[in-house]
Design a protein around this nucleic acid. Structure first.
Lengths: 236, 236
DNA sequence: GCAGATTATGTCAGCCAATGACATTTGACA
DNA sequence: TGTCAAATGTCATTGGCTGACATAATCTGC
């Protein structure tokens, strides 16, 4: 969901997620400053949320921590939830990009599974503490009703994108053929179940990379077939 | 999610959804009055939302329409979203109840499919305009971001219940066996996809009962297998 | 029916998220 | 350097939501 930072109606450089966009070094003082305050806001919010929780943290606090006015905060983020979910935005953009780039030979489910894996791994490589941050945010989301609601809505939004990509990949018409939409929905649901499962297990090994989360996701994806199977008790 | 109207910590009659609870005639003046103002609030809100949209409608308006204070409104509903989703609460409670009552011979997916069908049909029989109201609300939800977010959160909440019921039905441990959770998630996702599809088709025949929605739901459920199939182009 | 305990409601004050309007500063560019 | 556009700040306001306390309604046992 590549959020446009630009406040002007001018044409922004579309289709580049912030992770890969890190390659382009300079882009005018104005743009750099904006990116900086945006990043600062996200980081400050992140810290405050983890420290005192989402609800108790006020927008004024976040803004004050970065030394901008409250009004400016709302020029960068439509609401308080958005700044919390911004961290995931990177990963989501990246996932979409990966999915687009998957080879056509793979079947839809394979492609999505590969894209997820690729996303987490590149997030790991990207350095910084992207992975750690993402994992922390996921846990925060799952334990904060307001955030969970906003997150699920974004997920639904993303499923529209995925539906379109799948339809195009396979060359089917998404208005006639329900399979792209259904698969996108199912995949999203399983992803969320995995996040939830990962979040609720008292996982202390947050920092050791995306391996843990990938394992949980894989385990859930593997249960897709069995769960839909007629009889649960005729198990291999 | 049987909302307790009771504001006292006293033990309320649990496990009875409002639909079936219509059998119990009198229950003290106090209880009846409360049920009445609650119903009034829901109905007034419903009308106002459909008339002028969710966002533009203020809580004060709703409260004024029923002639209670704004404070009283918030004693019945935690937030503005809840009063909009309250209509669906009946159906959701009923679905849970139906699922619990499905015969053990059915496999999980069959049971859920049957429970949905049963729910919509009994909603139809229940008289009044329950079905019409539900369908109107679904459309409102799908077209209102804020409501959609709240709705998805509730759906996620309900999936927890469903997970538990499925696990018990099949006699498996939901902390070890991921199938109940995965199936609940998948089913919820498909339901939402169906709602979305139903809502976005300019369906003018709202009042003709649950048949249309059931058809859409069935069509989506039928695509579950095909969507997960490896190759989408080796189609029967 | 009545007195006293419960419980629902109203009133009021206040916090915080969010938005529009307008002034001011600051980077962009000729 | 001066002009234009864009980013920010300030101010005022609305609306969702909550706590505290007073009032009015119902319930309970007698």
């Amino acid at each position: 969901m590549g959020q446009q930072i630009t406040q002007t109606p001018a044409a922004p450089p579309v289709g580049r997620c912030r992770i890969t966009a890190a390659c382009e070094p300079v882009a005018g003082l104005r743009q750099r400053k904006k990116k900086r305050t945006r990043d600062d806001l996200v980081r400050a919010a992140h810290e405050l949320f983890l420290l005192q929780g989402f609800g108790p943290t006020t927008v004024d606090e976040i803004a004050a921590a970065v030394d901008v006015s409250q009004r400016t905060f709302f020029r960068y983020f439509a609401n308080k939830e958005e700044v919390a979910l911004a961290v995931m935005g990177d990963a989501e953009d990246h996932f979409i990009q990966c999915l687009r780039d998957r080879p056509a030979e793979e079947n839809p489910l394979q492609a999505m599974r590969a894209a997820i894996r690729e996303t987490w791994q590149s997030l790991d490589i990207a350095g910084g503490n992207s992975v750690t941050a993402a994992l922390e945010i996921i846990r925060l989301i799952e334990s904060t009703p307001t955030l969970l609601a906003a997150h699920l809505r974004r997920l639904a939004e993303q499923e529209r994108l995925v539906t379109g990509i799948l339809a195009e990949r396979e060359g089917v018409d998404p208005t006639t053929d329900l399979r792209p939409r259904v698969l996108a929905a199912v995949f999203g649901a399983v992803m969320h179940a995995a996040h939830e499962a990962w979040g609720s297990t008292g996982h202390p090994d947050l920092g050791k990379g995306p391996a843990g989360m990938l394992t949980v996701i894989d385990r859930h994806l593997e249960q897709l077939g069995p769960a839909l199977a007629g009889d649960w008790h005729r198990r291999a």
